[in-house]
Design a protein around this nucleic acid. Sequence first.
DNA 1: AATCAAAATGCTCATTCTGAGTATAACATA
DNA 2: TATGTTATACTCAGAATGAGCATTTTGATT
Lengths: 340, 340
Amino acid sequence: MQKLADKAAALAAGGRVPREIELGAALAIRLCAVILAATAREPRVLTVRIGGEEAAEALPSGPLEIEHRTLELGLRAWVERQTSHILGYVEQLYTFGDRDRLEGDGRPTRALTVAYLALVLEARPAGTAEANWQNWYRYFPWEDWRDGEPAVLGALLRGLADWARAAPGEGERRLREERLWLAFAAGAAAWNEELVLERYELLYEAGLVAERRRDLPSLGEAAPGPVFGQAMAADHRRILATAIGRLRGKIKYRPVVFELMPPAFTLLQLQRTVEALSGVRLHKQNFRRLVEQQGLVEETGELSLDTGGRPARLVRFRREVLLERPAPGVRLRAGRRVPA
Amino acid sequence: MQKLADKAAALAAGGRVPREIELGAALAIRLCAVILAATAREPRVLTVRIGGEEAAEALPSGPLEIEHRTLELGLRAWVERQTSHILGYVEQLYTFGDRDRLEGDGRPTRALTVAYLALVLEARPAGTAEANWQNWYRYFPWEDWRDGEPAVLGALLRGLADWARAAPGEGERRLREERLWLAFAAGAAAWNEELVLERYELLYEAGLVAERRRDLPSLGEAAPGPVFGQAMAADHRRILATAIGRLRGKIKYRPVVFELMPPAFTLLQLQRTVEALSGVRLHKQNFRRLVEQQGLVEETGELSLDTGGRPARLVRFRREVLLERPAPGVRLRAGRRVPA
DNA sequence: AATCAAAATGCTCATTCTGAGTATAACATA
DNA sequence: TATGTTATACTCAGAATGAGCATTTTGATT
């Protein structure tokens, strides 16, 4: 305890301890934005292509600038200037601080990345080849259970099971199996749609995503087999996984979906959007009961004729709920498996 | 879009844009630890005293060191070395990046603080005067509703109401009133114990905490009145508020309380701990029903005779629940106001 | 015009979960 | 032995959930 206090005092007084990351050390700070949108059936993420030859898909990211008053304001300003997207909902996601992320010049440096999650109304589909809206299941095909068990799941679980079996030592094997069980709920029994990051990290450790083989080239031959999902630059796929998991959790207790909806929408559109984000199907009648009981929406008085069936009432988000209910989210209990 | 892509590409290729925070700029990165523990009746936070003369209470914090592989490992190593506390549960809290936090030399700098929440079993009460376990309600007396409405609440709400009334313009006034309503639930009606940070920030903006007057000395005379709670160094009270809010939320859906419990405990001890953390009283019978139904604990076979009444069964945490239930937390619905 | 497919919308029903109690048991101490 | 204190068992009404069936209202097809 004493030591701690001493050190703290020394630091406060301007003293320095050895090996602290000093001004002038190899340190870069970047802000990284996971910008999400959604159509009724497709969850979207904004990506850019970087790196000349072997162009990799990446999340937009920019440097922290000195004149920004706070990190979040910095991010907002930066994104608005660059993409002309006005960010509505913005929340800090996580700060990634791995050492050894290689910067352009090849020296190992400490790269500190502060990642943010932003929700926007999707604007024009970004006509250039450089910045694009992508369906995020492109990167995580095993996360979309809307039409039943994803096709890749079998192969993916086989790969993971092999990895668990190959563990050095009994204890490690048990640990891996436990983690698999938790993240994949024994295949399907009780799929937890929030564990996006946990699942990605398992795949990474097991060498089943391209990023791992890139980061540890020695693994290239050791584990041939397939890799799953579209790779991204640096650790951007991990950041995206963090964002999706967070969003999937948040829609349950905060009305954040509405940030992704147009001003007026039908209840089915809302349901489809929630399903797109969470990757599971919901029971229609119960979903509406919930949304209406909670007072999340109100009538606009208009009808939508584009339903393909009986016209639907158009509703809008009731901003007042924010003042009424402590945690108004779109609770989602999955319906049964859908016929197909 | 095009601009964005260009910039990203330029950066990846080693190019630089103006005013980026460059190596060598005035930038410091610190890791800050909110280390929490609890006795049955008292929630605790580990603090140190820094700064010679006007010693302020502070959270332990240390520099990011280059040889740490990840931020979290860095924090663990650092805290273990300094406090001989082995951190069990550790989670990243938030990254605070305000400009203009004054460093020792008086220059305005960008201080990036990555804050972590750690839960430990309280060790010896830290005999030195320098590092101490403090009841955290010392800093947030308005957050403790275990014995009914906190005494300070009246004065505090009056201060806040004055601030709302003094808003420049109708719109701003409405906004302030809305925020007050949300954070304080109109005084008490539906107290939401998770909004610790929101409440602190309101008090800060209203000039009702000492930190605000320190940060904006000009306010000193403008708003004389009282200030609430014990102040802390820098923005440490804000960080602590973030931690408490996060913890209060988390105990509901993850079995994190058990990180704070001894190996064997009685159900009442567990309840008192949860109450200490959340600041509200719970209904005893329902609490036990929940904990037992969820399979969170199992018998040790022993009895505790220190109850002051009928002896109680000693139970222990069932680690297996982590593998069984998707979100095993100690759901807490407040009981009625307690007789006193 | 009659029929069909696709939604939207209305309503039911059994089950589980919650909130709030009452009642009883088992100890320490005055 | 009476009293205070805590543990533990059990009840009960009301709300919330999960799963369905039934009916209505369109456009598209026979």
